[in-house]
């Protein structure tokens, strides 16, 4: 990590966060470098989504700093936060499409609200993004009329419509089958090559997600246990990472006998 000379887009410095008596984040430190893909992994309930919400400025830390483009999100004005967020694109876990709007209007919304583009320009831009996501002809449908995979693609189109500098993905493939998940990953790879954005991905999909990552960070027990390249991550000696790798990438059965027994019953 030290060798990488690219500037940090997002820096979390000693971030702490509690909800009532439960401390979710305990002195979290993490840097996300420009143009890279950071994958944040960890078991459910370890604070990954809370971490992401801090980066988005939706939650404020009790202690510590969340710096985006050098600005501490907790200390800047609402207007400055808005300016920071103009560089963001977000694909939410449940996609968060506006369910009373058509697919076209969903993708067009950031353009209509944040730019002075004419309806003609908006249409051209939205159509381009929809075809990039293989969603031609779906513009007039409502989100509820689409499959889960299509909804994710609409969410991705909406996140990318203003060519953001940083794109956040919260569990982008949750609830999708293997082929739909691969489709999302392919779209992610293709769009990142084109638009050159920095990506922050919170995911459970280990080890597949490692293929896309420049860096992998493990969140466990409220802390970032390590942040390194996917290769180093899988070979790491750090006990938390070792346990995580073993649990997620190791055998399903705890012993050979158990596995044998399973096949015998079949």
């Amino acid at each position: 990590m030290e060798k990488d000379i690219r500037p940090a887009v997002i820096q979390l410095i000693d971030v702490e966060k509690s909800f009532k008596s439960q401390q979710v984040l305990k002195k979290v430190n993490l840097s996300i470098l420009e143009g890279t893909t950071m994958v944040i992994v960890g078991a459910s309930g370890q604070g990954k989504s809370v971490l992401l919400k801090h980066m988005l400025g939706l939650l404020k830390p009790d202690k510590g700093e969340v710096r985006v483009f050098g600005k501490d999100l907790a200390k800047i004005s609402k207007k400055e936060l808005k300016e920071v967020r103009q560089n963001y694109g977000v694909l939410f876990q449940n996609v968060a499409l506006f369910d009373s709007m058509t697919v076209f209007d969903n993708v067009a919304l950031p353009l209509r609200e944040r730019t002075k583009a004419s309806e003609k320009e908006i249409k051209a831009n939205v159509d381009e993004k929809l075809s990039m996501m293989d969603l031609q002809g779906a513009g007039e449908k409502f989100p509820a009329q689409l499959s889960g995979g299509m909804q994710k693609r609409v969410g991705l189109a909406r996140a990318l419509v203003l060519n953001p500098k940083v794109v956040f993905f919260d569990e982008p493939t949750t609830g999708l089958d293997v082929s739909r998940s691969n489709e999302i990953y392919r779209l992610f790879y293709r769009t990142q090559q084109q638009l050159k954005y920095t990506a922050v991905i919170v995911s459970h999909d280990v080890p597949k997600i490692f293929k896309l990552a420049d860096y992998v960070a493990l969140v466990a027990k409220g802390q970032v246990q390590g942040c390194m390249s996917p290769e180093d991550f899988q070979l790491s000696d750090l006990s938390e990472i070792k346990t995580f790798v073993k649990e997620t990438m190791g055998p399903i059965y705890s012993s050979e006998e158990e596995e044998m027994g399973f096949y015998e019953t079949l």
């Binding site: 988005l56 939706l58 967020r85 963001y88 939410f92 968060a96 506006f98 919304l109 950031p110 944040r114």
Partner: peptide, 21 residues
């Protein structure tokens, strides 16, 4: 419902002020 389904968070993250919009 918009709050529960993170649609308001989505607006904020798109730098669209939910108060105004």
């Amino acid at each position: 419902i918009m709050r529960n389904s993170e649609q308001i968070d989505a607006l904020e993250c798109m730098a669209i002020d939910p108060h105004k919009y």
